[in-house]
Design a protein around this nucleic acid. Structure first.
Lengths: 228, 228
DNA sequence: ACCTGAACACCGTTCAAGT
DNA sequence: ACCTGAACACCGTTCAAGT
């Protein structure tokens, strides 16, 4: 029988972040605690704090690791590239729903961190390739990034909510619930929202997301009088 | 000397929510605890739980109260109305930075709640007034709402971060810090972000925000071939 | 019906002590 | 240098007991 050391590899920041991502994927942000992490890594709390300053830094590192992987493949040429980058982020957020909250936290709390530049760089590169003048890059890029993160976060939440509602309820079932709730609103106060209820029920998420991306792109094109 | 009862008014859900908003404004989301709340209301924890199911419900109620107030005044006519609604939300989030996180939480976690319909209704009404066809209202409205919440949240975070960095540091000082950090990035990996650094430092927030709103509106107009 | 406040389970973080 | 794990302060929530 082979003798094993307690852990195959020594503890490292990398291994801790890796484990954190796994826990986040399985149990969400509230599920990530130092106790769960110490068990999974077969270590003590102090050991984790030797490699990572605190929980915030751990979440930032986990977020950056996932985002870096999602943006690693530089996608297609200019016209189609924006959509590709947007969709890569959309899928990453869909697969790691906790990303949505974390991304806005990283953008807000520490724009000097690693995550924000990474995303700005990928999106900005594509936006510039469209022909947007240098001094409008920030406005155009910001608008696009805000839309992407918001819409992708909404999509991820829908999936997560459906799962949380019960194993029998799928995504369509969840959206149906929302739709019904909106249809039950007061007709005098909420005429528009009631009318939107149908569209909430029927919409395809990816299609809807890309339609929004196209809409923002159309705005960028129009404002800067670019060729399509 | 007048005899007073312990509290001027009896405890009520309304009074609790009101106190919660005050604490959130003064100390942020982490500053809102049941202990702080019980002290301020001169009561016990159980009393609060009699009126409110849990902390989540309290946050939802606080969010709804502030949003309802911000959207209470129905603004100008169609063309200018969208900007007015957007700016109302922008200002509300600026004055209550915790709103940014809470709004995306409410949209994600409980779109059937009170907050999401309220915002969709205000924004949707204005978007429809632009002439957007009924079956595109959801796409157009969602895109605009995502942009508004994202950009306003970013602005609020900048203000809050500046305050947190120290009393001597104002907003310009904070943006300068971010700008410097971006300028220090690797020129090979982050050419665009480095170029954006200047614009981060110089931008006026409200102007920037409205430029983004106009960009999304231009997209809506272009996609639906509306008159300007 | 409405409120009190001690108690519970759990959390992030620290730190003296080990190797 | 790296790790252990008990201890600390704090948190949301519950609940038997009061009025």
């Amino acid at each position: 029988m082979v003798t094993r050391t307690r852990r195959t590899e020594a503890l490292s920041r990398e291994r801790i972040v890796e484990a954190a991502v796994e826990v986040l994927d399985e149990a969400g942000e509230n599920g990530l605690t130092f106790r769960v992490l110490t068990e999974r890594l077969a270590t003590g709390a102090g050991a984790i704090y030797w490699h990572v300053a605190n929980k915030g830094e751990l979440l930032a590192a986990a977020t950056d690791a996932v985002v870096a992987a999602a943006l690693a493949v530089e996608p297609a040429e200019p016209p189609e590239g924006v959509r590709a980058v947007a969709l890569n982020l959309f899928v990453a957020i869909e697969n790691h729903p906790w990303l949505a909250t974390q991304l806005s936290a990283q953008f807000s709390r520490s724009p000097w961190g690693a995550v924000a530049p990474r995303i700005f760089e990928s999106v900005g590169r594509q936006v510039r390739a469209l022909g947007v003048p240098e001094d409008s890059l920030f406005t155009a890029g910001s608008a696009l990034v805000h839309y992407i993160l918001g819409a992708a976060g909404q999509n991820a939440a829908n999936t997560a909510n459906a799962r949380a509602l019960g194993p029998g309820i799928d995504r369509a079932g969840f959206l149906d619930t929302v739709s019904k709730a909106w249809e039950g609103l007061d007709p005098d106060d909420y005429p528009i929202t009631r009318a939107l209820a149908k569209q909430v029920r029927d919409h395809d998420d990816r299609e809807q997301f890309l339609a929004g991306v196209d809409l923002v792109l159309a705005g960028i094109t129009a404002v800067h009088a670019l060729d399509k």
